[in-house]
């Protein structure tokens, strides 16, 4: 037990040490990068220049990348992101898994080439395995096959999953996963449909 604790502390300290080194190299690099970005892009379609501005989470993760930011700096943002989650007004987490499937397949939305009047896709399959029948899935994120089957559908599990899809940066600050709720990529109804894809017993994810 003691050895294990020591090991955990050691492992936790390692990225901190390298991050400290990285920090000295990366001083002001976000500011310089932003200046270069502003000079190098032009607004187009729905993508304005404000897309280049970073929020605190983006800024902190960029400044320390490829390392993780120091835990003490990350902690506040993790809490803030988790607090930003809006749970469904009617208390119902699950929509229609068939619509959820379509959202998971759809990759467009928010690009300057996309029609802003059309709903965005979630593009879940770009990174995750879900339905076993869909062979064209990515591996950036973990497989979500049998997601609901393996975890059950308790209120706590539904709430946890909702908040992770809504804002993954409340759990893993520099995760590659977009904040589908916080950033307004998916609507509340779309989030419910994606939740149904993950949890509905009839969903192919749980077959």
């Amino acid at each position: 037990m003691h050895t294990l604790t020591r090991l955990v502390i050691l492992l936790a300290a390692m990225p901190l040490a390298s991050a400290a080194v990285a920090q000295t190299h990366n001083a002001n690099r976000n500011a310089e990068a932003l200046a270069a970005m502003k000079a190098s892009f032009e607004p187009h379609g729905q993508a304005g220049m404000d897309r280049l501005d970073q929020d605190k989470t983006q800024a902190l993760c960029s400044a320390y990348a490829p390392h993780a930011p120091p835990a003490r700096l990350a902690a506040k943002l993790l809490t803030a992101n988790r607090d930003s989650v809006k749970y469904p007004a009617d208390g119902k987490y699950l929509g229609d898994w068939k619509r959820g499937q379509a959202i998971a397949e759809e990759g467009t939305g928010k690009q300057y080439s996309d029609d802003p009047s059309k709903p965005s896709g979630g593009n879940c399959y770009a990174c995750h395995q879900l339905d076993k029948q869909q062979i064209a899935y990515g591996t950036i994120g973990p497989s979500l096959y049998h997601y609901g089957k393996d975890r059950g559908r308790s209120e706590a599990m539904l709430k946890l999953t909702w908040s992770r899809v809504y804002d993954m940066k409340g759990y893993s600050l520099c995760s590659a996963m977009p904040r589908f709720g916080s950033k307004g990529i998916l609507t509340e109804q779309q989030l419910k449909d994606v939740m149904a894809l993950l949890f509905d017993p009839d969903s192919p994810v749980n077959k």
């Binding site: 960029s62 990348a65 990174c127 064209a136 899935y137 990515g138 940066k169 590659a176």
Partner: peptide, 24 residues
């Protein structure tokens, strides 16, 4: 490594490690 935009992406989001794929 500069992350921004609606999806928090940087080049490193997809090209920062080996052995991963997007779709196929």
């Amino acid at each position: 490594y500069y992350r921004a935009g609606t999806h928090d992406f940087s080049c490193a989001s997809c090209h920062g490690q080996s052995g991963k794929r997007i779709r196929l």
